[in-house]
């Protein structure tokens, strides 16, 4: 029996440490690094939204850019054309746009395709959405929508001014923490476990009278909404929604984060996104080497530690524990 309360506590502790680390960034780092940290925070949840599908429901999406881009463009449109609308409602519309795309696509595609076919279908549709964006004047075509304002939130009691990059950075950290928490709760709810059961044994779960399609669709819509939420939160930060954020290479990002960090772990995408941000930062002044560096690193991770970084660490710890010559487990645990 797994001790869920202990698990909850330890996850909470990890989250608290992570939040603390993000919270001190503006004090210790310059504005470029803070900006990068904000993007990384968004990427963490973006990666988690993908992993909800992959590790949760066993669906391989190669088109998460369509949700991310959908949410971003919805938010951009709302803030440019209806500036009077409350900001949080704008975010909800962004997330809703992603959910809607996921629902329409999921209803059509989930019944028909699985595995690599499903992955390629998502890739094709996401490319189509990217093309539609670049050809629609309303969406700014290739130049994108620029000059998106940052909001001030009126709560009635007080006014939250998020117009500065630093204030908005904190908003991102809080919003992403809430999203991650909600995701964790969902994955550990009966519904979340049921979806995982479907992944592990399709047939048996069906025998128990569960609608596999229904639950897969639920996971798909949730994942789409979450990815779109990330896109919607990002737009006021970068103040631009350009078609690049709906391009297929963006779809590879959450996959890279998850596999790098470890798909088997809730925090895998977080570790991967942070690592990726660090690599991005490290290669920023290199001439023409960043492609080959990223490629080699990824290949090494997939080939040598397919469980990702966290999977690798866990594996090593378990191996250590099993060794009979090792003294009491307490000492092993104390080692960082």
């Amino acid at each position: 029996m797994i001790d869920y309360r202990a698990r909850f506590r330890s996850n909470l502790a990890i989250a608290a440490c992570g939040l603390a680390a993000f919270a001190v960034v503006p004090f210790v780092a310059n504005s470029g690094l803070m900006f990068l940290a904000g993007l990384v925070a968004i990427n963490i949840v973006f990666g988690m939204s993908w992993n909800l599908l992959f590790s949760g429901a066993g669906l391989l999406s190669f088109g998460h850019a369509m949700f991310f881009g959908g949410g971003a463009y919805a938010m951009a449109l709302v803030s440019l054309h209806w500036p009077g609308l409350p900001f949080l409602l704008g975010l909800a519309i962004g997330a809703g746009a992603g959910a809607l795309i996921a629902l329409v696509f999921g209803v059509i595609a989930l019944r028909r395709a699985s595995g690599v076919y499903f992955a390629v279908l998502t890739l094709v549709f996401s490319e189509l959405i990217h093309l539609v964006i670049t050809k629609t004047t309303f969406l700014g075509r290739n130049d994108g929508l620029v000059g998106i304002p940052r909001p001030t939130i009126e709560t009635g009691l007080f006014t939250l001014d998020l117009t500065s990059a630093t204030a908005y950075y904190y908003f991102i950290v809080v919003a992403m923490a809430c999203a991650a928490f909600a995701l964790w709760c969902f994955q550990n709810s009966p519904a979340g476990r049921l979806i995982q059961a479907i992944r592990q044994d399709n047939l048996r779960t069906a025998f128990l009278g569960t609608s596999i399609f229904g639950w897969q669709l639920t996971a798909f819509v949730l994942s789409g909404a979450l990815a779109a939420f990330c896109g919607a939160v990002m737009v006021p930060f970068t103040q631009i929604a350009s078609p690049e954020i709906a391009y297929w290479t963006v779809s590879t990002q959450p996959i890279l984060f998850t596999l790098l960090g470890g798909a088997g772990n809730f925090w895998g995408p977080a570790v991967g996104a942070i690592l990726f941000g660090a690599i991005d930062y490290g290669t920023r002044a290199m001439h023409g080497l960043s492609e080959i560096t990223v490629g080699t690193l990824l290949l090494l991770v997939v080939l040598l530690i397919p469980g990702g970084l966290l999977g690798f660490l866990q594996h090593r710890r378990q191996k250590k524990r099993r060794k009979p010559t090792e003294p009491a487990p307490k000492r092993t645990e104390a080692q960082p």
């Binding site: 310059n30 900006f35 990068l36 970068t238 631009i240 350009s242 930062y281």
Partner: peptide, 14 residues
């Protein structure tokens, strides 16, 4: 635009 923003801000910060 995102990578360029990170770079521009970092340079300004320095």
């Amino acid at each position: 635009p995102n990578d360029a923003s990170v770079a521009a801000r970092e340079l300004i910060g320095a």
